[in-house]
């Protein structure tokens, strides 16, 4: 368990006091992938640096497993840091060292013989699929390859925790995907706890088990990724969730009075969203049959989180008003969120 107790960090710059992290309490389970999401300036980078004490919290305790890291002296802290790998947005590789030498950097003074170091580095290179780049210099690598080297270097001392500070933010979408996949594989293969800092909900959706939402230095919401996506509570969380889906586009279409959302009498636009994990029934065809409704899906966005579908559908539903109401009630009982977006129902 990674425990942060009442962690606060304030900076003093030019006479101004900046509270980057305010009274954060977190407990992060080992072996999972945790996402910390927030806009820039939310304090997430500072918070993650409080875990390996690159920033020492002004107040509070940080406990990793059974070690209270905030109580260690400098020398003990350095030893402890070897068990916490970290990767960065700008990779931070040593330009004067080859890929091999970069990965071997943290292995100095580790008591390994030269042969053992070589084997270890080769194993790590294989792990990140960069075997053939061993002798290259960082400047000869692409962004994705650089981040792979950085990951291998961060793993050199067999850490239990891997901190990732916006590690994919400087990469293109495809490379981002492959790096995220690698992090997921490492988590599964090595059982390493991964803490991912990001401002993109897509990253959280892709690999995280749990998510912590930060705003103005505070943790405003946290939970497992599925429930956060299904039932976001805070406004900022909703904004982040919406940013990964195109369902909000319907409001734009309505504002523009687009053809597709112009309703005839007796029709309404409904948004269905999955709220629970077991939404595998054929609900759309069921309501259209049982309640004699026409359901025309105008667009949808359904993805899998873990192995559960999340997202929703926007549909134009037409039929008798009472039948529509019955269908809405039926769906709500089945744990489907229903929101009436535009209403042209007529009571007969």
């Amino acid at each position: 368990m990674i425990l942060l107790e009442n962690v606060s960090k304030t900076f003093q710059a030019d006479g101004k006091v900046v509270e980057a992290v305010k009274n954060v309490n977190l407990s992060l389970r080992e072996g999972k992938i945790h996402g910390i999401i927030g806009f820039s300036g939310a304090g997430k980078s500072t918070l993650v640096r409080c875990i390996n004490l690159l920033e020492r919290p002004t107040e509070g305790k940080v406990i990793l497993g059974d070690v209270e890291i905030t109580a260690l002296d400098e020398k003990e802290l350095r030893e402890e840091r070897k068990k916490i790998g970290m990767i960065f947005q700008q990779f931070n590789l040593f330009a004067s060292r080859t890929v091999f030498q970069n990965i071997a950097y943290p292995l100095k003074n580790s008591g390994l013989s030269r042969n053992e170091v070589e084997n270890k580095v080769n194993y790590l290179l294989e792990l990140v699929e960069l075997k053939e780049k061993s002798g290259a210099y960082p400047s000869q690598l692409s962004g994705g390859q650089k981040q792979r080297v950085a990951i291998a270097r961060a793993l050199a001392n067999d850490p239990k925790i891997l901190l990732s500070d916006e590690a994919t933010s400087a990469l293109d979408p495809q490379t981002t995907k492959s790096i995220l996949k690698l992090l997921k594989q490492l988590n599964e293969k090595l059982g390493i706890t991964v803490i991912v800092i990001t401002h993109e909900m897509q990253v959280v959706k892709e690999i995280c088990d749990n998510v912590v939402v930060m705003e103005n230095g505070r943790v405003v919401e946290q939970g497992d990724v599925f429930s956060i996506f299904a039932n976001p509570v805070e406004k900022i969380t909703k904004d982040f969730v919406d940013s990964t889906s195109n369902l909000t586009k319907v409001h734009e279409l309505i504002n523009e009075n687009a053809e597709i959302v112009r309703l005839k009498e007796g029709e309404c636009i409904l948004k269905f969203t999955y709220l629970k994990r077991d939404a595998s029934e054929a609900l759309v065809s069921h309501i259209s049959r049982s309640f004699e409704l026409d359901v025309n899906i105008i667009f949808g966005n359904i993805e899998l989180i873990g192995s559960y579908p999340i997202g929703g559908l926007i549909s134009v539903v037409s039929g008798r008003e009472s039948s529509i109401n019955d269908a809405i009630n039926y769906l709500r009982e089945k744990n489907v969120g229903v929101e009436v977006i535009l209403d042209a129902r007529v009571s007969k």
Partner: peptide, 29 residues
């Protein structure tokens, strides 16, 4: 020198002397 390198070295457990000799003096040749 990119200050990120110092951060990276610190995160790998390097102390001040190691950072001077293995990072500063090497990267800034």
């Amino acid at each position: 020198m990119n200050p990120g390198l110092i951060e990276a070295a610190q995160s790998m457990g390097s102390g001040p002397l190691e950072i001077i000799f293995r990072v500063y003096l090497r990267e800034c040749i």
